[in-house]
Design a protein around this nucleic acid. Structure first.
Length: 265
DNA sequence: GTCCTTATCT
DNA sequence: GAGATAAGGA
């Protein structure tokens, strides 16, 4: 069924999302056991997902812009070492930590309609895909990289499986002590993930607030962003709570790795 | 009558 | 949340 969804997405992308209609999709998919109604229904859900996904990206971009307009002092004081020294700062600066909101650059990587940069669509992207997400049978998943802003001066944690909950838990415990800043208008525990650019979304550097380093140096921000854009990122929770497996899968699903079953009757 | 989209139901 | 179905419009 995952294969069916992949073919569905390929067909939609081929037609362009706006011109994709059930009959044409069905034609391109070449699956005879599906009806036009099946496709129409799936298309409806697909568009709905996409709409929500785009809305979220827009919101992230808007936050980034707002930060640049009102909060962009660029620096702050303290080194990125996660030192935890909480300076007295204006409420706005505290509420919108610089490091959570990169410059507009990541949006250049936003390719919402490209079928998620999947190697099956674009073999040139194969190198940035995690091996376990490649279409062909593959070795076990690589370890998730550490967040550069979490440990700007240190190096990635020991290899852990992507969906190993103990990894998330460790991550959570390690950064818990930094407290729970709040941002007006954004749910406090809105988990943030950094997604693989190969999945077709910008690296998710945006979000409410990293829990661990509120005042990184400009250099550490640039380094973090550069790092993020150059690596095959796996979903990485930066929220205060480790996400459930379901929420990670849900996030992946939003970006083209479906949980949506598409079955032949 | 056919096809698509949207809303609603299961 | 996802698939099926009904309703309305082009």
């Amino acid at each position: 069924m995952l294969e069916l969804h992949r073919r569905f997405v390929e067909a939609v992308e081929q037609l362009s999302v706006d011109e994709a209609v059930p009959s044409r999709i069905l034609e391109l998919m070449g699956i005879h056991c599906l009806t036009r109604h099946n496709i129409a229904s799936h298309l409806q859900k697909y568009r709905s997902h996409r709409k929500h996904s785009l809305a979220r990206e827009a919101e992230a971009a808007s936050w980034s812009q707002r930060r640049q307009t009102y909060g962009g002092d660029g620096g702050g004081g303290g080194g990125g070492g996660g030192g935890g020294s909480k300076n007295i700062m204006s409420p706005w600066v505290v509420a919108s930590p610089t490091i959570g909101f990169p410059p507009m650059r990541p949006l250049q990587h936003f390719r919402p309609l490209h079928v998620w940069g999947h190697p099956s669509m674009d073999p040139s992207l194969i190198h940035i895909w995690p091996k376990h997400l490649l279409p062909s049978p593959s070795p076990p998943p690589p370890p998730p990289p550490a967040a550069p802003w979490a440990h700007p001066t240190t190096h990635p944690s020991p290899p852990r499986p992507l969906l190993d909950s103990s990894f998330w838990h460790l991550h959570y415990q390690r950064h818990k002590r930094f407290g729970t800043p709040t941002v007006p208008g954004i749910p406090p525990n809105d988990a943030m993930y950094r997604l693989n650019p190969g999945i077709g979304v910008p690296p998710r550097l945006t979000g409410p607030h990293p829990p661990f380093d509120f005042h990184p140096s400009k250099e550490s921000i640039d380094a973090a962003i550069g790092d993020a854009l150059s690596k095959p990122w796996l979903p990485l929770p930066l929220g205060l709570k480790p996400p459930s497996l379901d929420s990670v899968l849900g996030e992946l699903q939003l970006h083209g790795i479906p949980k949506i079953p598409l079955n032949c009757a």
